[in-house]
Design a protein around this nucleic acid. Structure first.
Lengths: 355, 355
DNA sequence: CTGAAAGCGCTAACAC
DNA sequence: GTGTTAGCGCTTTCAG
């Protein structure tokens, strides 16, 4: 391995000049830069990033902590983020928390600031303050931060729970549905109703769904259905609802995985989607385009999400540089309704589409 | 940030002793180790990994290059590999090649050996020798290496194309199917037949499928169907086959994505799976457990795959350490038949199962 | 078993 | 614009 010193000697300049030239700094004369670049490629020089990181204090590596890569939502998020960072010449380390909030905190602690310039976290249940305890003073950006307003200490990027739930329920109303079940509420919230928009994405989406029901139907009586956000939970929930005589003509699921499970469970029990029951999801993962029926859902703008995430992280880094105080920002990413067969019926669609 | 020097001073030892103690080397007296660890935690010490990497020459970071994270196969692979590496205290950087062999090579080149200890590559179409040109002398492990035998210069881990295709076709035979189409062959191979088990996974699986057909049915006439390994391609292929009067009673697809597309396309044209046509996939991704019908497929042992990958990488690293010559190893990972509704019929299954 | 000294390869600060 | 100097924080000799 050639070192910078050797390149500098070959180009007839000093190491610092060579360094500046290779980094494309404008303070170097064009032909000096040229000489250096030539020498570097002749010697097949590759920078030693550990040395640069040690000296400069940053690595251009970021870490994303997510519960799971097999869930399409997180896979899409990771994919988009990796792409967005790559454009900026940065790399992404992915760490899996396996839906375990303890392991998640452990991972946050482990990301020594010497290795990664910033953390993107998709937390299952930790609040911003909890994470701050583990992260120390490293830059952090949260996806769907569920902290109470007073503890929102980090930038966050949020899915359009409010607009999304409203759009879906409005769509179901336009399809003529009268009794809409909101699927994916957690047990306590289902029993007591949401006190505030707090602490979990499930509660938040539930609250907004109730609000939309109130607004559009004038009531949200008996519409909450307790379920995990997983395929398995969807299947057992569907069976249970059928056993109860299916008191709904539409099931508005809080994410796509759950909707897939609901659709599967309904198919197993001979209930037709959407003739008997319409189903909607949330996220817009790919599988919704090829299930039978295809799934009506809110498609999150993942590319936009990743783009915002990267530029917000940059902002944090710059503020830190100038040691300005950082006032957390919160962005809500766009999404749009994908109306497909699970609400419109099978004739309405013309095959595979993510549009 | 506390440094090792400070920890050492606080513990009343020298930096080198502190370093050894923190790394758990046995050469340090137990109570010295204790003192050091205490001091470190008291000072909230975190090692600077850049400095360690610069000095020691390795980072415990590995890179996985894959075409895409949204494809469930790669997502599972990435997930398993991240887990397997995590157990060893290593981290994984994921880089997306977007199915572009040029970008893939570019990514390989960019992984400066100072940043990552080794490369795991899931190549779309580059051969081992091509990759070697870009990788230089860094450790590399290939998934489903399609190089001709004479250029297999790296360790590789391969899916059970031979056993898998045989098992699937045997299963279809047992289900009473007479005319089996092999879906997902590329155009040239479909026309000319495979000359050798060469150069692409598609050709390889095709060749083994033909061999199985010959062996089990005595002929493989007219069984190759040209298609990409994607959902979209599956849909158009299904429509095309129906237009031709569907000359098959079973379609053996070379991966799950393609099978999902085929099933979707058949549903759109009113063909019943499996009553009219049985369908099989390959890989065993999660979605196959909740489509209607659920998909019969060969489920790859992803955990085993990742485990082997990590231990083979370790071996390469050790050989390199002792500067022994490295003789490439090739492992074939296990997989097993998941017989589900797309061949057995809808009554056969009892809901969601990945078993 | 522990300590002293050297240096991994780079960039930042400053002098010219 | 360019060169000189110093040192980031750690690990690795090697001496005791």
């Amino acid at each position: 391995m050639a070192t910078l010193k050797e390149v500098a000697k070959a180009a007839g300049v000093s190491p610092s000049t060579a360094s500046a030239a290779l980094r494309g700094l404008n303070i170097v004369k064009p032909d000096t830069t040229h000489k250096v670049i030539d020498a570097a490629s002749k010697l097949n020089y590759h920078i030693n990033l550990s040395a640069r990181a040690l000296r400069s204090g940053h690595t251009n590596i970021f870490t994303l902590i997510i519960p799971d890569l097999e869930n399409d939502f997180y896979a899409k998020l990771a994919n988009s983020l990796a792409d967005a960072l790559f454009i900026d010449g940065c790399r992404l380390i992915i760490q899996i928390s396996q839906y375990d909030s303890g392991k998640e905190l452990e991972l946050v602690k482990q990301q020594s600031s010497s290795l990664c310039d910033g953390l993107f976290i998709c937390s299952t249940s930790n609040t911003a303050t909890t994470i701050q305890g583990a992260a120390g003073d490293r830059p952090v950006l949260l996806f769907d931060d569920m902290s109470a307003p007073e503890e929102e200490c980090y930038d966050s990027i949020n899915t359009t729970s409010q607009g999304g739930m409203y759009a879906l329920i409005h769509h179901l109303q336009q399809c003529g549905r009268k009794r809409i079940g909101i699927v994916g509420v957690n047990e306590l919230a289902a029993k007591n109703g949401p006190r505030y928009l707090g602490l979990t994405l499930r509660k938040r989406r539930y609250a907004y769904a109730l609000a939309a029901l109130e607004q559009l139907y004038g009531s949200s009586e008996g519409s909450a259905i307790n379920a995990d956000w997983s395929v398995e939970s969807g299947i057992t929930t569907a069976h249970e609802l059928v056993r109860q005589g299916m008191p709904f003509d539409a099931l508005c699921c809080m994410n796509d995985q759950l909707a897939f499970g609901i659709m599967r469970g309904l198919a197993e029990t001979g209930v037709n989607v959407p003739d008997d029951v319409a189903v909607t999801g949330f996220d817009g993962v790919n599988a919704g385009g090829f299930t039978t029926p295809t799934l009506t859902t809110m498609a999150i703008d993942f590319a936009g999400m990743a783009h915002s995430a990267v530029s917000m992280m940059r902002r944090q880094l710059e503020l830190r540089e100038s040691s300005s105080p950082m006032i957390p920002q919160h962005v809500i990413v766009g999404s749009r309704l994908l109306a497909r067969e699970s609400t419109l019926g099978r004739t309405a669609s013309t095959g595979f589409t993510t549009r």
